[in-house]
Design a protein around this nucleic acid. Structure first.
Lengths: 211, 211
DNA sequence: TCTAATTTTGACCAGTTGGTTAATCACAAT
DNA sequence: ATTGTGATTAACCAACTGGTCAAAATTAGA
């Protein structure tokens, strides 16, 4: 039998999945190697056999997760559509994605804030500068019609992205303030509703913008 | 000399401030009692003299911070102004507040997500249900004119609040994607700009809303 | 089947962490 | 000065945590 390029991918995978869960739930400093081992159904020593240290395991997980998140966002904005259509597509697809990965936003934002070192390992996957220019060039006419200058792009992009991300990051706070939102199905229904609400909101804002 | 009601408030205060700093920076599980003691310039044992345990110290800090945050938000929305004016006032004052407390949003959101127990200790300070109704009743006419039904209020309120909070929660991610934002002054200028941008954005969206 | 490499485990270790304790210090009241 | 009280400290401890290691189990190849 051919020697596999990576060590037994079955066990490695179980570890990786367990680690992803635990890190997302508890964050780096709250996560325990023992718990990851338990959830993977293996010995703690085996964890260090596949991933030398907690840091290395964490970085492996973090890199995959942040790539997942950004690939999704970038792919949508790179598509060949009008800006208006892109906004709709973005809200639709990104909210679908986040419903399946509800803990992702807060996990990524928090780890980056608490330990900015993690950023060095992923700077490459996040070259947005290029994208921002591409977006503006591509839609210059449409956006100018809305009174959006190139210098307004950061404000606009952050606003759009926050529409989908923020409710997930603020999940618990929302649950406290609107008790029926504690129920996952209710919250997901709220996010389903939000696809249309946010698209209408953004497009109306753009159409009617002063200046 | 009169016996003070609370133990020496000077030391207690130094501890509380140091704890606030450390918890905000590292989160509960990343914070170390030793570091808090060091920053307060005292012995670690003295920490436990004033606050029995890490949990107790944390809850004290957490409660004060979450109250600070919500009092600010609630106070503004309770004011006697038109909805339009409230939005402007909110963005103005809340962004000013967050510029002075930039780590607050992510800290609160994350701790609530990682350890939902903390919520029990502060449910009282967060009775929003009442407020939502008050807001809608008070501005029913104005909001109906914008095509906002009572059932849309959560979508709208979350959108408004995210305008100020999200950029602070996503501070590091923004810094990665827009390198000049690494500079604090640039970021704060961006948030200053955002006051007007967000107000225009929201009000235009409302005015021009379909349905 | 035998052997060598790989995978998995239990036991163990050193450093860290929250927390305790008994002693000391500062100081106000007698 | 003495005494009593609260504030502060150094030293210490038990539990936890990431990580190691040598031995055992499994697997693949000759």
């Amino acid at each position: 039998m051919v020697k596999p390029i990576v060590k037994d991918s079955h066990t490695r995978d179980k570890i990786f999945k367990a680690a992803t869960q635990v890190f997302e739930e508890k964050g780096y400093s709250g996560a325990r190697m023992q718990e990851i081992a338990d959830r993977a159904g293996i010995n703690k020593a085996l964890l260090h056999y596949y991933f030398r240290s907690k840091d290395q395991l964490f970085m492996a997980v973090f890199q995959v997760l942040i790539s997942k998140m950004f690939e999704k966002i970038f792919a949508i904005f790179r598509a060949d559509l009008s800006f208006k259509e892109k906004i709709k597509l973005f809200l639709d697809q990104h909210i679908d994605f986040l419903v399946k990965n509800p803990k992702l936003p807060l996990f990524l934002l928090n780890e980056m804030a608490v330990n900015p070192t993690v950023i060095d390992g992923v700077r490459e996957s996040l070259k947005y500068g290029e994208l921002r220019d591409v977006i503006y060039e591509k839609h210059a006419k449409e956006l100018k019609g809305y009174g959006i200058r190139k210098s307004d792009m950061p404000q606009l992009m952050i606003t759009i992205v926050s529409m989908s991300i923020f409710p997930f990051a603020a999940r618990e706070m929302i649950a406290v303030m609107i008790p029926q939102m504690i129920d996952n199905r209710k919250f997901n229904a709220f996010m389903e509703e939000r696809k249309e609400f946010a698209a209408d909101f953004i497009l109306s804002a753009l159409k009617h913008r002063k200046k």
